[in-house]
Design a protein around this nucleic acid. Sequence first.
DNA 1: GTTCTAGAAC
DNA 2: GTTCTAGAAC
Length: 790
Amino acid sequence: MDLDAGGSTSAPAPPSESLGASAETKEEERGGKQVMVVLVGPPGSGKSTFAEAVAGGSATAGRHWVRVCQDTIGNGKAGTKVQCLKAASDALKEGKSVLIDRCNLEREQRADFVKLGATLHVDVHAVTLDLPAKVCISRAVSRKGHEGNLQGGKAALVVNRMLQKKDAPLLTEGFSRIMSCNDDGDINKAVDLYSTLGPSDSLPSGVFGQKSKGPVQVGIMKFLKKADSTGVEESSGHKLTLGERKPGQQNTLPKQENVEAMFSCTMEVEKGLNDKKKNEEHAKQTDCYDDGSCTLAFPSISTADFQFDLDRASDIIVDTVANFLQKHDSIRLVLVDLSKKSRILSLVKEKAAKKSIDSRRFFTFVGDITQLHTKGGLQCSVIANAANWRLKPGGGGVNAAVYNAAGDSLQHATKKCADALRPGTSVAVPLPSISPLHQREGVTHVIHVLGPNMNPMRPDYLNNDYTRGSKLLHEAYSSLFENFASIVRSHMGKVNNESGTEKSASGGTSLKDTKIKREDNHVSERMKKYKLLPPIMTVNQQHACTKANTPNGLDNAMTSSAVPNQTKQGNNKKSSVVAGKTWGSWAQALYELAMNPEKYKNSDSILETSDEFVVLKDLYPKAKRHVLVISRMDGLDSLADVKKEHLPLLRSMHSAGVKWAQKFLEEDADLVFRLGYHSVPSMRQLHLHVISQDFNSASLKNKKHWNSFTTSFFRDSVDVIEEIEQHGSATTSSDEKVLAMELRCHRCRSAHPNIPKLKSHIANCKSPFPSHLLQKNSLLSSSTMHMDST
DNA sequence: GTTCTAGAAC
DNA sequence: GTTCTAGAAC
């Protein structure tokens, strides 16, 4: 059998026969193993032909193949990935080998199949059908009766877009073998290879046949994109290492490809099966430093703006570094400062030497931390930022420099991870590949760190308390380094398994960190709502910041002891049950405001406060003008609770609403207002909506939003008052089914298929409002106003 | 209430 | 492929 049918090899691991005794044993163990072949290719590349040839061919050498095709898995129609996974799993459990016939062009698309293979202990191979896009498109366009109904003009578009998002399969994804077919000849060989693979045969691991892709793809891109061919050659297949990239050269590599290149060293360590393992590992370690993949550059924290004593700071840096390097190998730390005369650099250098810290793994560096590669020739995949607690740009120093160099994308990416930082913590932010800092310097992550503050002009001043300051500075560096280790680890995957137990115990897993960050985001999100941030940090926010990325629960004094009892109670109040209804924590923001408006008096969202109500600008207005008149009466949660005794309150709220509508009409006479309550509100505490009827707002996003203001779910204030006067209570019967009703224009009642279409309609609909609204005097406009306001 | 995400619809 | 929705999380 031609085991090397894919042609030339670029595999990191040589064919099995040269691997020596241990590898042979392994090969033996694998004998008879099932295979899952994940086909990778756009529509028209011949995946189905391939799969059918292998699975349906008569030449199968006794191996039972099952073709899992997404285009037909749903009773002959297109199905889902989940269905494919299930079918693959079933077949594998029956002892069969499987061909996954779907595009699988993106890494994410393949991941679940690789995972399934790992779970069931079968080899997972990738076979890439890498034919010119032109060929695929013309085949896809001209074919008839395609199983997935992808043909004709639509096909060209789809193939085109798919190819732009393509990630070449990598061994690090978990494939034991990757084979690339660049033409029909290659495909035929591959079909032969798999259809003649007997039940006890196995194929060598590695990457086969990937080398001739470059020129082919250049042609594709010209064909597809017309213009902009910068960097196409690189992005098409030839793997660049960061070291190969020339300064200033535009890097168009997808991020993941970069990451792989960076961590290729570790991948090879994993493959290092031979006797010289240790030596090789050492050599690889050096490579890994050269390409910056294991290197963190960090500035001295807290010593500049925050005026932390340099001598103590240098002790803490050296201690923390020494401690950290002991626990983690294959990691390099570099302390960076701009000035040659930097006192902190010389102190650290001196103390590190005294402690005999390996100078290859930790050293000081004079230079701009945002230009280490281009100006300093030092490649670092991760840099630390001496951030401020709000994680915002500006302020000078390293923070300003990093944000400036990284561009807006850092700000956006940061916002996704955290809203604020407590002293002594850090947060790692993946730097988008569009960031100049990523492209130019090869920086893939920025870790924001906040140290203690000894400067009386800055927040959280420690008033010369160096006991606490030192603890916090130590925590800040530990958190920074652990975050860095997590980044390295998360890309190394299973590497270093033998020592992994100890290491993973020393820092939180990145998954866990992400989860924590998300929780924090939610908490902060809630506080951001209505911009209700009192001048002093709120309890919830303090909590959020404290939690922010504190690695593996370092005993943070602020978390466990220094927070007042009140805080803990506050946080425990995740939901409360009032009169049978459960309100989630997010739903209580209005209640909290109504009970303690004085806390939020500085918020510019609050328009007016009285003993009876608070008037608030809705932070997510569903129209040009949208305010809430919130009752301050405790226990009055929603319309269902309203009784006769509340009539005076309802009337006051109504008047307040009218007053504000009038004010808005003075500014914009074209508006029309409606005042009313939601039958079943989402947020606790009775609140009256005062909303202009343009509904021109980006915050109006879904059917529920629309229907809650334009159906019987919205109860006009005048009606509610009348009803209570007559019956003593308001009808809230309106079941929530109306919220799911079709989308109809509130003026002309025409129906629209979706929100965007509806929005473009209402932007131009000039029909008069429905007569029931006009008759009832429910609408406030500049022409009706003089009547209502008297 | 919003945000996030999977997957249906196009 | 993109757009949009619905459901679940908080």
